[in-house]
Design a protein around this nucleic acid. Sequence first.
DNA 1: TAGCATTCCTACCCGTGAGTAAAGAAACAG
DNA 2: CTGTTTCTTTACTCACGGGTAGGAATGCTA
Lengths: 240, 240
Amino acid sequence: MSNRRTSPLAAGKAAPAPASPWRTSGARLRDRELKRDAVIRAAAREFNRNGYHNTSLDDIAAALQVTKPTVYYYVTSKEQLLFECFVAGVEQIRAAFREVRQLPLPARERLNAVLRHYGEAVASEFGWCMVRAEDQDLPPAMSRHIKSLKSEVDQGIRRLLREGIQDGSIEACDPKMTAFALAGALNWIAHWYREDQSLTGAQIATAFVTVFEGGLRPRRGALRMNAGARPRRARGALAR
Amino acid sequence: MSNRRTSPLAAGKAAPAPASPWRTSGARLRDRELKRDAVIRAAAREFNRNGYHNTSLDDIAAALQVTKPTVYYYVTSKEQLLFECFVAGVEQIRAAFREVRQLPLPARERLNAVLRHYGEAVASEFGWCMVRAEDQDLPPAMSRHIKSLKSEVDQGIRRLLREGIQDGSIEACDPKMTAFALAGALNWIAHWYREDQSLTGAQIATAFVTVFEGGLRPRRGALRMNAGARPRRARGALAR
DNA sequence: TAGCATTCCTACCCGTGAGTAAAGAAACAG
DNA sequence: CTGTTTCTTTACTCACGGGTAGGAATGCTA
């Protein structure tokens, strides 16, 4: 609940330096919104590192070089922390949908753009929370809210698939299953990205999109032994 | 650790009726292996329902109509419970690899067979544990073991992809990214299958395989009629 | 500099849940 | 029927962690 004012929490790249608003300058800051965001970011980092249940509020406080009651000064419960991390993550994806809705492109291109942003979101600092937030860990109201947001994203993908089938840019398929497959592949990034950051989220998503678009079955019918390995080089006009 | 004797734990379909070895017959059973399996199955069901951290051993005991020390009579820790559930799940997938290795089929066909079994495993009663077991929840030794098993499966998929590219049955692609995409899509089934069991795991996997094989881009290029199509009900003309 | 609001900490409460000790109930062997 | 083994329970211990009370420090305003 409690749609905060426009704190620029979403869409931020993970700051390598924690840069806590505490202990950085000698004087005590009075920017509430800033500190609140820092608390949520720190929570996201700790959740991402240890998991929600293996992270205590003392851990989060320690990461900020602060004590637990200080955290509670900015947040009312651990659940709220998880909830806000989730929302921050999913908001990036919703933004992608809004952004793409305007573009005069075939649905497949718009879908690809959304999927790329999706991948970036999952690889962001809030990715873990967005993907792994379990509704059983949250009170009913938050759980419902999360489910609703997840469903919105799912329906958005299905809609783009249907539009693509309509306008001929996407092969006929079952939108529901296809959406599950796409979202699943991207969501799963959150599981291994922590260990292997050799690519950015957008790069991963682009690689995935290539697979999804082309499919495993060879395009140009011939079942040639070796030699024919020619990567894709199609889509001139609209891509990019 | 402690590789139990060959208890037929894996490969079993979820028994709708719990069928606890306790409280079913009047006399007290003395089959240790049977009861141990029942404990692990019950744990898997409860973990699947509430999540690992939201499941107490009292819950598991209650599900078996037994008390907590009884559970500890068959198992040494909660961690072991999770570990064994994981192993039971992943064992189904390893079996699929072994089975398929013999078949005289192009690699793509063998891959598809593995993926179908993979989907069944994820949709099985151990699917949740296999997919969501977090290494942070387990002691180092078990964590290493799990990582090793996961890696084995990953490498198995990559190998099939490489073989497929070699024998021409699979379009050239990046095996690592493609394997991540495939496994991710299938793993993610565990997240929504609980809520939507309208299809079996094998059916879902088959649907996924169809998507993966064909890809989203239309096969016969002819269908590219209105490529620059308007997005959803664009009022004005093509806004450039 | 008094006075007020904001921010933060020390010191606590207490429910929960993993894990155990020790004794009781059933089966089995002789 | 007696002793022994196997299984199950009652009745605990104890650490951990979410959350809070109340007060101290700091900054803002006049």
